[in-house]
Structures are given as C-alpha cells and as structure tokens.
Design a binder for these strands. Structure first.
Lengths: 205, 205
DNA sequence: CGTTTATTGGACTGATCTGTACAAAATTGG
DNA sequence: CCAATTTTGTACAGATCAGTCCAATAAACG
C-alpha cells in the first residue's frame, strides 16, 4: 500500500537545487542546517527525514551540480560540423559564459566542483568518489575530441591524447581559479585561446 | 622600560608555521582553536594574547606561506645562463617537486593558496588582499620572464606578455587542482610540458 | 627584596552546531 | 468515520565553537 500517510509539501529536487546554491556559495563547513532550512524553505524535520544528514544532502547537491554542469558542457563537444579544435573552443566558451553568468548574480562563488576538490576531497571518500567519476567522464570526452582532432587535422600536437585531456582539464580548473582571483572576461579569453595554442604546437621537449 | 614581565616560552614564528600546517591541511572553518593549541603547543591564552583572533592567526599563517613559497619559486626565474623558457621549465619543476613532497608526508593538502582562493577569498577582504598582492607578485615575475623569452627567442608566441603570464598562473593552479584530483607525477609533467608548448606556438586565433 | 609588567593555564561564557524526540497534522485505505 | 502511515513544527540534547577572565607565575627594574 503505497501513497500512505501525509504527502510531502515540497519538491525534493527543488530542495536539492536550493541546497546546492547554498553549499556552492558558502562551502560545506560554513553552511549550517539553519542556512539549509532557510534556503530550501523546509523545516529541520523535513530535511532530516528526506536526507539522512547534512553530509548526505551535500552529496546529493554535488551530484546534481556535476551531472547537470558536465552534461551541458560536454554536449557541445559532440556537435557535427565544426572541427574538433573549434568544438573545444566552443566548450571553453560555454564554461566561461557560465562563469560570468554566475558572477553576475550573487557575486562569484567560482566552480562548485573545484571548490569541493580543494577543500573536501582529501578528507571525504564519498565526496571524492563523486568527483572522481565526474573527472573520468570529462577526461573521456576530452580525450575523444583530441583523437578526433588528430584525425581531422585541427590538433597537430603529438603529445599523447590522455596527457592533452589532463592538460585541458587543468587549464579549465586554472581558469576558474583565475576567475576567483579577479581575472575579467578578456583575460580569461586570452587564457583560453593560449591554452588551445598548445594543441597546435609541435612538442619539442 | 622594555623586556619587562614574564618572557614568552615559545617562538612566535614557529607558532605561525605550525598554525599554517593545520590551516593548510584542514582548512579555515574546520580548524578549531583547540586544533591550533595542540599543533602549536600553546595554551588558549598565549594564542589570543599573541594573535588577536583565529582569523588574525590565519592571515599570519597565509602570509607566511605565500611569502616563503612564492619567493622560493620565482627565485629560479631570475637565474643567469638558461633561456627564459628553460627557467620557466625549472620553475614548474620546483612547483611540482613541492607538490609531490607535500603529498609524501601527511597526504596531499594541495596548495594552501589555491585552497584559500576557492574557499575564503570571496567572503573575506583581508584574506583577498593577501592573495591579490601575492598574485601580482607572481604575475609580474612571469610577465618579466616572458618578455625576456621574447628577446632571447625562446618564447615565440605573439600573444601579449600579460596574457601569457595569466595563462601560466592558470596552468599552475590547474595542475594543483589536478594533483588533488589524483594526477600522478608523470601526468603532471605532461601537463607542464604541454603548458609550455603554448609559449612556442604562433597564435592563429 | 618588593614592585611592576607580561605570560600562562584553566575554568568559564554564551552562542551555535548537528541531530533527535515527539506530538500534532494531513492524507489514504477500509 | 476510523485505523494506519507519513510529514511537519517545535522543543530539546549534547557537543563544540571562538573568545574572555583571572589568579598564578616568572622575569626585569629599582
């Protein structure tokens, strides 16, 4: 007999999204259960009844973030028509657009993924696992595009595709850190374009 | 009449160093005053007598970190003999050596600077100021080396030196994030070498 | 040696933290 | 309408938080 008892007065996914925003801007430690209640509009009981703990809700929020963000970003890598390098350019543009949009409303909280890597990943295996899975997904997409670029001639660097994929993820993380350090859009565009130069360069060392 | 009253039983600089280690590995929010007492060996009174607050001690610790680390790293950029690009290569090697050494003892806490940028800089102007000053110092050194490389022929990219300096700081931050994501030394070496490829590439976009 | 000045340890404060207990409320199935 | 079942609001619990107070201690100066 399902559908028994008092029904929920809130949408679980919307609660996760609201929690995500708070964790994103304030960080895990600095976010109190009180903050989560206010952001989601739920009472303590509802939060602890729906999610086991603050840590559990954080994992839900982080998973939501990486899934939606990564999907949105790597989507452009699979487009038909442009060369692999052009798709990588679009990819970086999508990321920077998101970064600036995020900066516009509410002042920059940076990238939730990077923030979490640098503050929690070392001490929380569950969280590390979420991030690791997302990283592999991103690396796979990037490695695939690099290999395609090698075939269509837009990527001329002769470094291993795996290394170039790691390089690209590093450049992206680095741009996000630079963005939080105050780098404005023109600077970030320069960084992105310079980053792609390496894919056209011949490796000499 | 100076030198009055009971003398200190500890070295202030050593206390700052010990506090730095704790803040570095645990993060600001997760570090309690109790942790600081245990790490420094001081009592609460001594800490609050010497440093105004937890936040103040953190700023001292962060300043200590950026001063020593940045000095050590940019030192190699001023060496005589090798080309600018070779000095940049040494620079990246120094950074990666530090990263791996840090990983060996105590398990990787990443880079204290990057950790702080991604967790505190947006909400604490004092801390942001410390990081901003260090960033300018690094950017200046890198821009100088890039300009030297342009003259000695080791840097052939025709992108603006300022943009290349930002690019290099971004690559470094990105490598540190990658390191915390589990990238091992060979991968990080690949990223570093690929990063330098961009300085030899001609800009086409 | 006594006064002065500074440090030190430990107890203490009030606030805040995550998580729980429990009864009232709301809905379904019979 | 009456159980059964789930959610919800509120009060509460125990721990921990940053920071303060104060008496004991230890040195320098006269």
């Amino acid at each position: 007999m399902p559908d028994m008892g008092r029904p929920r007065q809130f949408d679980e996914d919307r609660a996760v999204e609201a929690a995500c925003r708070v964790f994103w801007t304030k960080g895990y430690e600095a976010t109190s259960t009180q903050d989560l209640c206010e952001a989601t509009g739920l009472g303590r009981s509802s939060i602890y009844n729906t999610f086991k703990s603050k840590n559990d809700l954080f994992r839900r929020a982080l998973s939501h973030y990486v899934d939606t963000m990564t999907a949105r970003q790597i989507e452009v890598l699979g487009e038909e028509g442009p060369s692999a390098l052009e798709r990588l350019e679009s990819f970086l543009t999508v990321i920077l657009d998101g970064e600036m949009e995020n900066r516009r409303d509410g002042y920059g909280s940076g990238c939730f993924t990077v923030n979490t890597i640098t503050s929690l990943a070392a001490n929380d295996p569950h969280i590390a696992a979420i991030l690791e899975k997302d990283l592999q997904r991103r690396l796979f997409s990037l490695r695939t595009v690099v290999e395609q670029g090698r075939r269509d001639g837009s990527v001329t660097s002769d470094r291993p595709a795996e290394g170039l994929a790691w390089y690209l993820t590093s450049v992206i993380s680095g741009m996000r850190v630079a963005a939080q350090s105050g780098a404005d859009r023109p600077v970030l565009d320069q960084v992105a374009r310079t980053g792609l130069d390496a894919l056209r360069a011949g490796a000499t060392v």
